[in-house]
Amino acid sequence: ASAQAFDRAAFQAKGIADTLKALGAADATESKDVTIVSPDIAENGAVVPVGIRSGVAKTQMMALLIDKNPNALAAAYDLLEGAAPEVNMRVKMGQSSDVVAVVKADGKFYMARKEIKVTLGGCGG
């Protein structure tokens, strides 16, 4: 399956709702088959490792949104023939935020949400 040209306008959207709309994913449903793999507390807000896994058959696209970033969309991936529904990346987060993974599979959209904390640090036992 060949992907359609990606519309980069989605990178200009702000917040989760508008970005989902820009991705054509406004009707995405929460799904347990979409998982976000990341630390609960970021070691370094400039380098936060985040992975997306999809267990939905015929996954064709995966995207990562960070609610509190100036623009929510961080990355989108077209999975062509052969690609497994699993990508890992490292992203910047200015502050604690929900992150949302969006998956398009067989033309439908699914999503998952998770909080990642960015803390000032210090202290300890």
């Binding site: 992975g51 623009n71 991936y77 077209d78 023939e81 052969g82 890992n88 992203v91």
Partner: peptide, 29 residues
Amino acid sequence: SLNGKEVLKAHWGPAISKNPYLQFKINGG
């Protein structure tokens, strides 16, 4: 690409960290 055939396309914004890291898997290699 795997053996010249495209398998993954990434579209990134500036929120990807400096010196980017990308990990993915390809079935059938």
